[in-house]
Simulated assay, not measured.
Amino acid sequence: MMPTRPVWAEISRSGLLNNWKLLRSAVHNEADVMAVVKADAYGHNAVACAPLLERAGAKWFGVTCVTEAVALRKVCPDARILVMSGLWGGEAGAIIEHRLAPQVWEPFHFDLLEKAALALGLGPRSVAIHLEIDTGMSRQGVRSFDELEKLLARCSAESPILVEGVMTHFSAPEVLEPDETQSQIARFTTALDVVAKQGHHPVWIHAGNSATAFVPQHLETLKKLAQKHSARLMLRPGLALYGYSPRFTPHSRDAMNRELKPVLAWKTRIVSIRTIEAGESAGYNMTFRASRRTTLALIPVGYADGLNRLLSNCGSALVRGKKVPIAGRVSMDQTILDVTDIPQVEIGDEVVLIGEQGGECITAYDLADATGTIPYEVTCAINARVPRLLVD
């Protein structure tokens, strides 16, 4: 059944492929690029985006959990898929069955994988893992070098577990002063030396996200680190893949920043129009009160769709190529716009919440700034009841 509610998000094929090409170009083919499509591709629809990227040359995809990975495997049967949040009881069998690469760091992760491999009668080094090192994020990863040595000792030549990759996660790669990433790289360097001393030779060493592709000094350091261990460097960009550059990145990459194209446009239509007189209110709790004769337009989008309630009385939308303010509270399923200054506005007019119209633009950064958050949350928050439509 085709959706009839006039709320939708357009996902630009050309924008996504443009951004992928730029990221590949930024690393000069001296590193592999993992397309991070976790959280439903940051709200862009992973099962729609991933096949496009795979056809463009993406070999690796990063997802949050086994459930996301299994859904992705159905549309990308030959891709390598990294499960980035570890595994839990009952998931090891699915990891093996669907040829997934789990990101591991806890001893029980090894227990689960070893038990599943034994039950399936798998031979030595048949289950590939990517071992995460905690270099300062204090979230995931092996924290101490003693613990690292103990885990590596479990990966003997007879073990079903193969250390295919070693990775870490930077806490602030876009911040250069003070450069906390350098201290994390130093700790990662020591951890990789421990891995090598224990006789393990990972195929991939990976660290860094979108920001790393924009910071030449970090990228060059990581390349040399991978070369030292005869491994291939891999980066894991997410935000830039969907068209937004990390803030506070060096001006030397401004040209690349400008070439990134936002992939998602969020649109709706005006479904009702009315006029109120000066002094009348609109919306819950009468937080909007007209100072003049005012034309109000209703759009069928609310916080249940992902339009943050903090945009009440301060957000905006595009109507007929002009920005118009949100009038009153954002409701669960509806929002009111003040379109008094838009002549000849009509029911059915297209409204842009994120995207371009008539030379004006509203970005996920704009919504993030207005609500005190980050663009990742803005796009991830767009509810699944808003259909994603591939365009161009």
Results as ranks from 00 to 15, higher is better:
Ile299Gly: 09
Ala304Ser: 06
Asn285Leu: 13
Ala304Phe: 00
Ile299Ser: 05
Asn308Pro: 00
Phe288Ile: 00
Pro300Asp: 01
Leu296Gln: 05
Arg274Ile: 00
Phe288Pro: 08
Leu298Glu: 07
Met286Val: 12
Met286Tyr: 06
Ala297Gly: 10
Ala317Met: 10
Thr275Gly: 10
Ser316Cys: 08
Gly302Lys: 07
Leu296Asn: 02
Arg289Ser: 10
Leu318Arg: 00
Cys314Asn: 14
Pro300Met: 01
Ser316Val: 00
Leu310Phe: 10
Val319Tyr: 07
Gly306Thr: 04
Ile273Glu: 06
Arg309Lys: 13
Ser291Gln: 13
Ala304Gln: 12
Thr294Ile: 01
Cys314Gln: 12
Thr275Met: 08
Leu298Thr: 11
Arg320Asp: 10
Ala282Cys: 15
Cys314Trp: 00
Thr287Tyr: 13
Arg292Met: 04
Gly302Arg: 12
Phe288Gly: 03
Val301Phe: 04
Ile276Val: 13
Ala317Glu: 12
Gly283Asp: 11
Cys314Thr: 15
Leu318Tyr: 05
Arg309His: 14
Thr287Ala: 07
Tyr303Asp: 02
Glu277His: 12
Ser312Val: 00
Ser291Arg: 14
Leu307Tyr: 09
Pro300Arg: 01
Tyr284Leu: 10
Gly279Trp: 01
Ile276Tyr: 00
Leu296His: 05
Arg292Trp: 05
Arg292Asn: 07
Leu298Arg: 11
Ala278Lys: 15
Thr295Glu: 10
Val301Gly: 04
Arg309Ile: 08
Arg274Gly: 15
Asn313Trp: 09
Asn308Met: 12
Leu296Cys: 11
Leu298Asn: 05
Val301Glu: 11
Val319Ala: 06
Ala290Gly: 15
Ile276Glu: 05
Cys314Ser: 12
Glu277Leu: 08
Leu310Val: 01
Phe288Thr: 01
Gly306Gln: 02
Ala317Pro: 12
Tyr284Arg: 15
Ala290Ser: 09
Gly302Asp: 13
Thr295Asp: 06
Gly315Thr: 05
Ala290Val: 08
Thr287Gln: 09
Asp305Asn: 11
Leu318Cys: 08
Ser291Met: 09
Ile299Met: 03
Gly283Val: 13
Asn313Phe: 06
Thr275Tyr: 08
Arg293Met: 05
Arg320Cys: 06
Ser312His: 04
Phe288Met: 09
Phe288Asn: 04
Tyr284Gly: 10
Thr287Pro: 04
Thr294Lys: 14
Thr295Ala: 02
Ala297Thr: 07
Ala304Pro: 01
Ile273Met: 08
Ala304Cys: 01
Gly283Ile: 11
Arg293Cys: 08
Leu307Ala: 07
Asp305Trp: 02
Ala304Ile: 05
Gly315Met: 02
Ser312Tyr: 01
Ser281Gly: 14
Ser316Pro: 03
Leu296Val: 04
Cys314Phe: 00
Tyr284Glu: 06
Asn313Leu: 03
Gly315Cys: 03
Ala290Asp: 11
Asn308Ala: 07
